[in-house]
Nucleic acid binder design. Structure first.
Length: 516
RNA sequence: CGGGGAGUAGCGCAGCCUGGUAGCGCAUCUGCUUUGGGAGCAGAGGGUCGCAAGUUCGAAUCUUGUCUCCCCGACCA
């Protein structure tokens, strides 16, 4: 986040001055989303929804490649479904939206109130997640070992009545996909749980250019009803962790609650082992905080709704027609190219207005490549190229490069690949530099996070994996430092030494961090 | 849900203390001049001051309630 005083940045707030305000400025200035007037709910605007559609498309392909089929289940879930699983209902009870009536009547004062005559026999819950309703369906669909594994997914909205909301990161309503699968035994279910986790890890890194650490969560961070919860954790530019996706092995918890059984080859009635896994619009919040800069979002090419925007420098004179013709021909050439196994997405922005003014709108949205084309470019067969990830020159001017149109067309696909790669590398280098592995006691941990450092990163340390009351004590100690255990990295270095919390021999490595 | 702050034109704000039918900047529109890089000048349009009650001859301004947003905390697959 080095600064050049001569640069006039596009955002009103810089990252280093106020990260929370900067985050909201990106969302507003890049026109990703806006407030709706309904508590905790946002309107997702075209550029933000376009990014979500890209995520949906590429994730959906991966889900289907794994043999998982899409379904759709009801938004409303009978209250009694939740009551079947004590831990699950307890986990969500405090944040459930409840429908109690099905009709309104006039209150006699010009307003409307729920009709007392139209009270529902049984309240309906607006789904916070769908294990219960999908479990009920699985119980109907599964009879025989031949019906397994049952692999389903749905793209849907869910509602969780959160106390404190933040755009994309924690909204009352959010969009996600939730995979739900049922298997004959634990081994098969665990394989699926880990397959989904690896799908998320590679998606985050390859598609979102967002490096993540995958691994199991400690027992206090498990999904209500899960036997084991795995997550991918990403580091934001302020050093905080963001849980960007989760995959749960649910054991027979929901099978017992919903009666998901099959007759095995020996003729025995056997409980299924189930899994669930999901990623949400929260991923967009992660992309913002990993790739955003003081000029707005830098959208990774693979999820950019437009990868190249052409800005003709219209002059409201006779030369405009020829200029537009040149730009349209250029657009056609670029649109015929492929990158990342898809057609290049290129927009010719013909809206009235000065190109220089429109440019900053696209810079803030993070379009990977911006082309500004003037009359002289058109006459000379040239283009003027701005790479979003290398926006500024040393002198504080926008870093345009002039080149022959043919050369640009020939290199455009490779350039988009290079931007995708550069964003990943930048994030990876930054994250790796901010994981501290040299701390082995509580005092060191406290010192690391109390240092007068604006954005401390993560600490990876060895511990003895306490459980129950011993774990609760550790959680309390960490809470005093505003820290949480993120997960146990799966590719961690060998374990050494003793646990800083219990003094016992360490058995695994954990990541400790401040988190969103 | 607790503590703090805020809602006035599309956006950002002043006015409120000391009630008298609303103002600035940016943006928008019009005109002129500029323009190979986030233009200048002049003029114009746009607001039941979040919503609802109350006090008052009169409320953006005072009182109460309520909704929404931001920050801190608690909570959070």
């Amino acid at each position: 986040m080095s600064q050049n005083a001569s640069i006039k940045h596009a955002l009103p707030v810089l990252r280093q001055d106020d990260f929370a305000q900067w985050y909201q400025a990106v969302i507003a200035e890049a026109e990703l989303a806006e407030e709706s007037g309904v508590r905790g709910c946002m309107v997702i605007k075209p550029w933000g929804y376009g990014i979500w559609e890209r995520i949906q498309k590429l994730m959906d392909e991966r889900i289907k490649e794994a043999g998982v089929e899409n379904c759709y289940f009801p938004l409303f879930i009978p209250l009694s479904y939740f009551a079947r699983e004590a831990e699950h209902v307890e986990g969500f009870a405090k944040e459930m939206a409840v429908v109690t009536h099905h009709r309104l009547i006039s209150d006699g004062k010009g307003g409307l109130v729920p009709d007392p005559e139209a009270k529902l026999e049984e309240p309906l819950i607006v789904r916070p997640t769908s294990e219960t309703v999908i479990g009920a369906a699985m119980a109907r669909w599964i009879q025989s070992w031949r019906d397994l594994p049952l692999l389903t997914n749905q793209w849907a909205n869910v509602v969780r009545w959160e106390m404190r909301t933040r755009m994309f990161l924690r909204t009352s309503e959010f969009l996600w996909q939730e995979g739900h699968t049922a298997h004959a035994d634990e081994a098969d279910a665990m394989t699926e749980t880990l397959r989904a986790l690896e799908m998320y890890r590679s998606f985050a890194e390859d598609v979102l250019a967002m490096p993540v650490v995958a691994g199991p969560k400690p027992e206090n961070e498990r999904f209500p009803g899960a036997v084991e919860t795995f997550s991918i954790e990403a580091m934001m530019q302020d050093g905080k962790a963001l849980q960007a996706g989760t995959s749960h092995y649910l054991g027979t918890t929901f099978s017992e609650a919903a009666g998901i059984r099959y007759q095995d080859k020996e003729g025995q009635q056997t409980l299924c082992h189930t899994t669930s896994w999901g990623v949400s619009t929260r991923m967009i919040g992660g992309v913002i905080m990993v790739h955003g800069d003081d000029d707005g979002l830098r959208t990774p090419p693979r999820i950019a709704p437009q990868q190249i925007v052409i800005l003709p420098m219209l002059r409201d004179n006779d030369g405009d027609a020829a200029l537009l013709e040149y730009c349209a021909a250029l657009r056609a050439k670029l649109a015929a190219l492929s990158v990342f196994d898809e057609k290049v997405r290129v927009l010719l922005d013909k809206r009235p207005g000065k190109a220089t003014a429109k440019r900053w709108g696209w810079v803030k949205k993070g379009v990977p490549l911006i082309l500004e084309i003037g009359g002289r470019d058109a006459e000379g067969g040239q283009v003027s190229v701005l790479r979003r990830d290398r926006l500024w020159r040393e002198d504080g001017k926008a870093n345009f490069t002039g080149m022959a149109q043919d050369d640009f067309v020939a290199s455009a696909a490779a350039e988009l690949e290079a931007i995708q790669s550069a964003l990943y590398t930048e994030a990876r280098v930054r994250r790796d530099a901010q994981i501290e592995r040299g701390i082995s006691d509580l005092a060191g941990l406290a010192a690391y996070f109390s240092e007068d450092k604006d954005f401390p990163g993560w600490v990876e340390l060895c511990w003895s994996r306490p459980t129950g009351a011993a774990l609760d004590k550790v959680v309390e100690q960490l809470k005093a430092l505003k820290l949480t255990i993120r997960n146990t990295p799966m590719d961690a270095a060998p374990v050494v030494g003793v646990c800083p919390f219990t003094g016992e021999l360490a058995v695994e490595r954990i990541l400790v961090a401040r988190a969103y």
